[in-house]
Amino acid sequence: MLTPGLQQVKKYRLKRAGIRSLFLLITGFRKHCRVEGNSMLPTLRSGDLVIYKPIKPGGTKPTPGSIGVIKDPINTSSLIVKRIHKTHSQGIELRGDNETMSSDSRQFGIVNINNLCGIVEGII
């Protein structure tokens, strides 16, 4: 649902991970993690297993609209999954697809680009 008056980002849809992605996961070129929470509904449900392409700190700049796996800026020992709403020179702005429920950059501000661990490619 688009919210009037707010700039919207193109939300890239996630596909089921193909055999190629699974092969890359087995060989260590991809990582996977399980989603916990409802802030990415309807794209990701709690319990979904997602596959992501790891990004080295300072690596490729993410595309706005893609879904990132990011070190939680409040508790860096845990990871969060959010839509990359915008990219700024200072970092990335995150937003949950479930906007009325999500706790994201609207609360904790712009996140350092080095916190970005990977880009979600699909659901296993």
Binding site: I19, C33, L49, G96
Partner: peptide
């Protein structure tokens, strides 16, 4: 093969990634 691998990965433990909400119940 894809289906079998998918089932296998879903059984195996995986790191959790939080999709934070304001509260667990909202």
């Amino acid at each position: 093969l894809r289906s079998a691998l998918s089932k296998l990965f879903n059984i195996l433990p995986a790191q959790t990634v939080n999709a934070h909400c304001d509260g667990p119940c909202g």
